[in-house]
């Protein structure tokens, strides 16, 4: 019942949804998308991991962050439980 209430509340509060979507989007826009090889790298990594573990297509995320002159390649792989 509590779960139902949770969804009901979410539905009526579209402003909260807008804020959440914007925060993600704006953070992404500000990063400037990263190098152009990122999507391909992400697909290749996913293919390799799938040789060993069955994972969803959104299990791998690849990001590049810049910190001054340094670039950090961040890989996040979520394995199924």
């Amino acid at each position: 019942m509590a779960l139902l209430d949770f969804f009901k509340q979410r539905k009526s509060n579209s402003a909260a949804l807008a804020k959440e979507r914007l925060q993600i989007l704006v953070a992404h826009d500000r990063r400037g998308g990263g190098p152009s090889y990122l999507p391909q790298l992400q697909r290749d990594l996913l293919a390799v991991i799938r040789k060993y573990v069955a994972v969803d297509s959104d299990a791998v995320s690849v990001n590049v962050e810049r910190d001054g002159a340094q670039e950090i390649l961040e890989l996040n792989i979520i394995l199924p439980e």
Partner: peptide, 16 residues
């Protein structure tokens, strides 16, 4: 509309 949760509140826009 902000009160009804239909519009982004001022603080949200400022925060973003």
């Amino acid at each position: 509309r902000v009160k009804r949760g239909e519009m982004l509140a001022l603080e949200d826009v400022q925060e973003i």
